[in-house]
Design a protein around this nucleic acid. Sequence first.
DNA 1: GATCACCTTGACGTAAACGGAAGGGTGGTT
DNA 2: AACCACCCTTCCGTTTACGTCAAGGTGATC
Lengths: 157, 157
Amino acid sequence: MPADLRRPNRTFTIRQLCLEFKCTPRALRFYEDKGLLAPARDGMNRVYSYKDRARLQLILRGKRVGLALAEIGEILDLYDLDDGGAAQNAKSLQKFRERIVALEVQRHDIDQAIEQLRHGCDALEKHLAATRPDLLPRAADYDQVLRERLGDLEHAK
Amino acid sequence: MPADLRRPNRTFTIRQLCLEFKCTPRALRFYEDKGLLAPARDGMNRVYSYKDRARLQLILRGKRVGLALAEIGEILDLYDLDDGGAAQNAKSLQKFRERIVALEVQRHDIDQAIEQLRHGCDALEKHLAATRPDLLPRAADYDQVLRERLGDLEHAK
DNA sequence: GATCACCTTGACGTAAACGGAAGGGTGGTT
DNA sequence: AACCACCCTTCCGTTTACGTCAAGGTGATC
């Protein structure tokens, strides 16, 4: 009885999650090794719950913003403590704050990098237009790529 | 004759740049090995120009936004080509565009991460306030840290 | 002239984050 | 019974970005 595939207590195989999030089984096992995931087992086989999936999402997002797996682990642990209602140490709070500041700095850097790249693009484009206009990709293509990527983001919400 | 230390053609030793940008001589030599920097020499010793310094700035900013050294190298090369006025290949332009899109995605991730961390902070803070209010850091401290970091940014402009 | 403090070039070591292949089990199908 | 298509563990390999000596050269200083 497959019931509803979206029911909140459905489970996932390692491959399913890998396909969904575009990573490899090796990576998931690695995260488990590092204590970031702890899926249930059916015999030998890993069985991932919705909660596990959510953790994986956080892990991958953390990676995208440049956090090390160890740091992601700490954050995840804190979420667990928070659930248990016994997050008694103030140092964790401080670490959170530091991370926020670091991320704000990073955001700033990204904005600058984007701006610089746009500049570079403009220059290159002008040059190309003047020399080999036939090689110029069209703006529509870029918009297309952009839409695709943002589609991915929608999913990761 | 030290003249004006800020004159645009002053030079820097490896250590000066390291102090200014908080990195190690080893790192600078490594970047040189990888072709990202090419300082002049005074005998054996490296002599960094203002241009070299600017390149280093770009390298470090690139790193902060998650670019690999190799990618940073390509970007830097393109800037050089642009100077030389002969950036004839359209593939570079495409790579630039891809990087921009990637950075926009990353920016999005960072926003989400910040939001999540703020949530975590709120929770932790409430819990602390209810149990060990004596351990609570004061908001003023956080603001202080923030101001310091943003000061660093000012410099990196 | 010995001691710093700084610079140099190798050469080897290392932590992080996996990749990949070996060797083997399980369940379903033809 | 043979063959997939998965899954597992174990172990060794790889890339990136440096850290860390080792061994030595140069100039200023006590």
